[in-house]
Amino acid sequence: MTSKIEKEDLSRRNFVFGSIAAAGLTVAPGVMLYQTANARDLSKPVSSKVRWGMLIDTTKDVDWNKCVEACVKEHGLGNEEHSRADQRTQYIRVVDVKNKTTGYSMSLPVMCQHCEKPPCVDVCPTGASMKREDGIVLVDRHRCIGCRYCMMACPYKARSFVHETLTDQKTTTPRGKGCVESCNMCVNRVDNGQLPACVEVSEGAIVFGDLNDPESDISRLLAKHGGKQIRADLKLNPGVQYQGI
């Protein structure tokens, strides 16, 4: 099924990256820690004390397509039969960018950036597009009317629309025709104390953790090396940050 998840071509996507600076920061290998695992009382609502985030080190020599594959497998994506390739759902995709002047090129995985101030939530007429207290942005498909307003509003083109009747969904990721969907930061896994699927296969290149906890790996890495947000100028404060872009 992964073959259906096409790499996005440069021209469509490079508007996101006005310029690329190759900072070349490296994070200590093997960091894939999740201190707060199971710490949460599952009978209580999530709280805004936690804010989940991801730090993606694009300088690592990782095949990002592995992350796409893991995502597809985790959420049972790619089961559309009639949709065109560009209509099929993508939660995460690999974007190739090239600086035309220097010829420097690189790849990076882009998923929903889990904005602190998500425009997709602002525009949703039904309250379907929502941000959980812990910063994970989701579509409540019970309320989604499929207007696709959020798809227009998202500056990262993170969202997809399901065009056809689906069967054999994963129990953990209900999804169906007429609803918009996007990366949910593997909320099913996170609530279980597991790492998101893409993080797990990233060989340490993606660090997941609590941005609000200064002692978490992600916070310490960010404090030490810094991180970059895509289109930081929009001031949406995404929870997904990058190194090496």
Partner: peptide, 16 residues
Amino acid sequence: DRILTLREGVRAKADG
């Protein structure tokens, strides 16, 4: 429960 689980992140009933 769909509101509790999806929107609030409650995954188990409080009464044990």
